[in-house]
């Protein structure tokens, strides 16, 4: 909440500065937009575009982190299965993480995404119009989401019927799907 307030303060300061500049320029009878305002807008434009890039990077990092956790859960599950030990918890954790790949994060991330959409921010506005992305999604397409969710379900079912071969096969699908995310950038 503090960071949100900080951004708000910066924007207010910038707005006040702009109003001041505009007022000062009023008497100069110049047909051009005052240079300081253009420069300020230029800087703000850079910041807006950089923010969008930062959003992509952040979501990419969320996905990469989730994938790393999934790799760990997969390795532990296989290890347990091959050792004849209980792997239910690891398999369910893997299923949950794969579902999170499809959802670009967990419920906390979903709440942030919803707030952004509520505020009118659509990272992939054009892609949403074309039906490629769900509202607010940054990297994961609808098709990719569907595939991740299908794999998550298939993996989850293996918790009750452990099968290392089947688990590896399903994980291979996840790996391929995850690799394809980068191709769609």
């Amino acid at each position: 909440m503090k960071s949100r307030s900080g951004i708000l303060v910066c924007l207010v300061v910038a707005a006040v500065a702009c109003v001041g500049l505009a007022h000062a320029s009023h008497h100069e009878m110049n047909a051009k937009t005052p240079a300081p305002l253009v420069e300020t807008y230029e800087a703000l434009g850079d910041a807006i575009l950089a923010t969008k890039k930062a959003e992509w990077n952040l979501v990419h990092t969320i996905l990469a982190t989730t994938y790393q956790h999934a790799q760990g859960a997969f390795a532990k599950a296989v290890s347990n299965l091959e050792a004849g030990e209980d792997a239910r918890a690891q398999i369910e954790a893997l299923a949950e993480l794969v579902a999170q790949l499809g959802n670009e994060g967990d419920a906390s991330v979903a709440a942030i995404r919803k707030r952004l959409v509520e505020g009118g921010h659509h990272h992939n506005a054009k892609g949403e119009e074309q039906g490629v992305y769900e509202e607010g999604f940054v990297i994961v397409t609808r098709d990719a989401k569907k595939q991740f969710l299908a794999s998550a379900g298939a993996i989850g079912k293996l918790a009750a019927k452990p099968d290392a071969v089947a688990l590896k096969a399903e994980w291979n699908k996840v790996e391929k799907q995850f690799a394809q995310l980068h191709e769609t950038r």
Binding site: A152, I155, G156
Partner: peptide
């Protein structure tokens, strides 16, 4: 929003599992 399926873990706690068990979304994942 995604529907919730809170699975009873048998010890008085629950785990939201709808995302990977099917009933959170339609067949298209939406």
């Amino acid at each position: 929003d995604a529907n919730y399926y809170y699975r009873n873990e048998g010890d008085g706690t629950f785990k939201e599992v709808g995302m990977w068990t099917g009933p959170a979304f339609d067949a298209g994942g939406a």
